[in-house]
Design a protein around this nucleic acid. Structure first.
Length: 659
RNA sequence: GCCGGGGUAGCUCAGUGGCAGAGCAACCGCCUUGUAAGCGGUAGGUCGUGGGUUCAAUCCCCACCCUCGGCUCCA
């Protein structure tokens, strides 16, 4: 082929581009436009992500990956992880390096430091500085392929790299190898400088000069191959972005999330606490938190009442036999609190409410006419969460589920799941969530009971309910509970974070284990199907999520204090007291703050408490029965008739609670 | 459970091998205030708990509890 020969490559928009044979992707980008060339970090050729330096062939389908795309950021982050590794290896000789993948919003790299030393804050600063020097030096990422044998000798003093090479070439690679290498007869490495080369599948940016907008975030312990029993490594987390502005935005987002941290807000707003004397993962609710929780629970009860549920109550403890019957002692003993030995047997705090609801069902003979039978309980359960996993309200050891168990016939299953989904979504919407995603979790054969056919039937019912809803959903292969498949519903909060809240689980096992039956129209005995359904999930956890979602500014119907009325001077206190009484008599949560501090200071205090309405009452207001309305996040309005304010408050609360 | 931070006044945080500090909050005065911090004063601490080293420990060492960031786990 002569130098003048041309080839055609196809672009994502369907057009073709005529370029000289032997051109690289980088040259293609430059031929398309200088802006694209500048933004390019890698490219996809015939569906494979490769370096910009890859030569193109006639007929290739090529799309250039730019730094502003998710795929582009992924490349930036992975490349930055290599720079991190280079910096650490230079600064701390004798370090063994392991893997360093890109993750959501950033990257990490795991190291085994000599002599079991750990990273310090100063290390992090020094490493960041060295990384900047490497970026400054504009080192190329040079890819080469070699036989596993050569790679093993190249990384002879890097045991973790050797282990990866061996696993990959023995066809034993899995997700834990974190995209370091591709399998086959050869492995690829990327060389940055004479002193640094890393085993890697790529692709990477052309040179380190393409990077630079990064920050090292934190140090953490981690285990090699995520195996608790494996060697302990030191992990450095970092973030990297395509521009200084994007990095800055990300850091601001993190700050915003920190401001919303429910643990901080719970203290600031005097909502609840975790007294050490009580033990880890156990909360006490203060009056202001308790009222919000009560309102949430009241709302949940009201909806369930209208939704055809029957309320039940069950105790916190049960004889071990119950959990033997249910299978919990076989499958989830580790997650249960330790047993209590009593004179007539062994008792456990309940980790779930379902076995007890089964007992209620079984107490007498049931007719098909009763089904679907929907039992509902705000049931408090105790689970032994491992010490290191506790996290504020989001992961605690004692919590209350808004738990429902629905017993129905096989024929009713699909309809019931469908209406359950509607019910769940409508309640979540009331709490300000409207962005949902769904996950269908399927059987894990190693950790489950029941026949294939039962699993298949239940999974199909769940899937068809999702499809009927027109919902996009993902599949969690093997993520199901031991007794049946499930749908998990995630919500996205005000700052875009995802939380798993509701769950709907099909269960053929418990009815079997408890021998549940109903008499059908055919006068024969049949086995009902059971659905587990948590809506808010754990009330405590939901409260925490809601607190972060609203950033502490609860909507008026939920706010601990809805209205604070401030007298301008003590001369107005009596009038204010009568207004407060009027509001309280109408069922609103209103209070006042006497005029022993300046008005501005009292307003500030009320604002910090995130009270929806601050009313100010002075001479004019007493005379005309008006108030100055200072709403949260709105404009001050003077001389509003009190009756008009009341109407506004009424409408606000009604709209918020949907009542 | 594992790795690494941390625990000092109600809150946020300084500090030191030799009498424990600030700001805010609280309380008491003065001020009587019109929309996000008026002024002055008072009180407040077993420096997480228990052991050890030391003439002397809040500080150094050990154990435990709680907590934070991860790992793992998540019915």
């Amino acid at each position: 082929m002569s130098e003048a020969a041309l080839i055609d490559v196809r672009l994502p928009d369907g057009s073709t581009k005529n370029i000289p044979a032997g051109s690289t992707a980088a040259q293609l980008a430059a031929a398309i436009g200088s802006r694209l060339a500048k933004a390019a970090v890698s490219c996809v050729v015939n569906g494979r992500e490769v370096d910009l330096s890859s030569p193109l062939a006639d007929g290739d389908q090529v799309s250039i990956v730019t730094a502003e795309s998710d795929a582009g950021r992924h490349v930036l982050r992975h490349s930055t992880a290599h720079v991190l590794a280079q910096a650490v290896l230079q600064l701390i000789p004798g370090t063994k390096f392991t893997v360093g993948p890109a993750i959501e919003d950033g990257f990490y790299y795991d190291f085994d430091l000599p002599g079991g030393r750990t990273f310090t804050e100063e290390d992090l600063v020094a490493i960041g500085k060295r990384m900047s020097e490497i970026v400054e030096a504009n080192q190329p990422f040079v890819r080469s392929e070699m036989s596993p044998k050569d790679a093993l000798s190249l990384f002879a003093d890097q045991p973790y790299k050797c282990e990866i090479i061996q696993r990959v070439t023995s066809g034993d690679a899995d997700a834990n190898d974190a995209g370091e290498v591709s399998g086959g007869d050869s492995v690829s490495v990327y060389r940055n400088s004479d002193t640094f080369v890393d085993l890697c599948r790529g692709p990477h940016v052309p040179t380190t000069g393409r990077l630079g907008h990064f920050a090292l975030m934190k140090v953490a312990g981690a285990h090699w191959r995520s195996n608790e029993k494996g060697p302990t490594l030191q992990r450095i987390y970092g973030t990297a972005w395509e521009s200084k502005a994007a990095l800055q935005e990300h850091l601001v987002r993190l700050e915003e999330a920190e401001k919303r941290d429910h643990r901080r807000l719970a203290v600031e707003m005097d909502l609840l606490s975790f007294p050490p004397e009580l033990g880890a993962g156990l909360a006490v609710w203060h009056p202001k938190g308790a009222i919000v929780r009560k309102l949430m629970e009241d709302y949940s009860r009201e909806r369930h009442q209208n939704g055809g549920y029957h309320f039940v109550y069950t105790p916190h403890l049960a004889n071990a036999q119950l959990f033997e019957t249910s299978g919990h002692l076989d499958f989830y003993k580790d997650g249960m609190y330790p047993p209590m030995e009593m004179d007539n047997g062994t008792y456990y705090p309940k980790p779930m409410n379902c076995p007890m609801h089964c007992l209620i069902y079984r107490d007498r003979q049931r007719s098909y006419r009763e089904l679907p039978l929907r039992l509902f309980e705000l049931g408090t359960v105790y689970r032994y969460e491992r010490a290191g996993t506790l996290h504020g309200l989001l992961r605690i050891r004692g919590f209350t589920q808004d738990d429902s168990h629905i017993f129905c016939t096989q024929e009713q299953l699909a309809t019931e799941i469908g209406s359950l989904l509607d019910f769940v979504l409508s309640v979540l919407r009331r709490f300000g969530f409207d962005d949902f995603s769904y996950k269908l979790s399927t059987r894990n054969p190693a950790k489950s009971i029941g026949s294939d056919e039962m699993w298949e039937r239940a999974t199909t019912a769940l899937r068809s309910a999702l499809e009927k809803l027109g919902a996009q959903y993902t599949i969690g292969d093997g993520d199901a509970a031991f007794y049946g498949p499930k749908i998990d519903i995630d919500v996205r909060d005000a700052i875009g974070r995802k939380w798993q809240l509701s769950t709907i689980q099909a269960d053929f096992q418990l009815p079997e284990r408890f021998g549940l039956e109903y008499v059908g129209a055919d006068n024969q005995r049949h086995r009902p199907i059971m659905l587990h359904r948590a809506l808010l999930g754990s009330v405590e956890r939901f409260f925490g999520v809601l607190l972060e979602h609203y950033g502490g500014s609860f909507p008026t119907w939920l706010a601990p204090v809805q209205v604070r009325i401030l007298p301008v001077t003590s001369a107005h206190e009596a009038h204010v007291a009568s207004l407060v009484t009027q509001l309280v008599d109408e069922g609103y949560r209103a209070d006042t703050a006497v005029a022993d501090e300046q008005l501005g200071k009292r307003i500030r205090a009320a604002k910090l408490e995130r009270i929806p309405y601050v009313l100010v009452v002075g001479d004019d207001d007493v005379r005309a029965n008006t108030v100055g309305v200072n709403p949260r996040g709105g404009e001050v309005q003077r001389d509003t008739a009190f009756a008009d304010f009341l109407e506004r408050l009424r409408a606000d609360v009604r709209e918020g609670s949907g009542r």
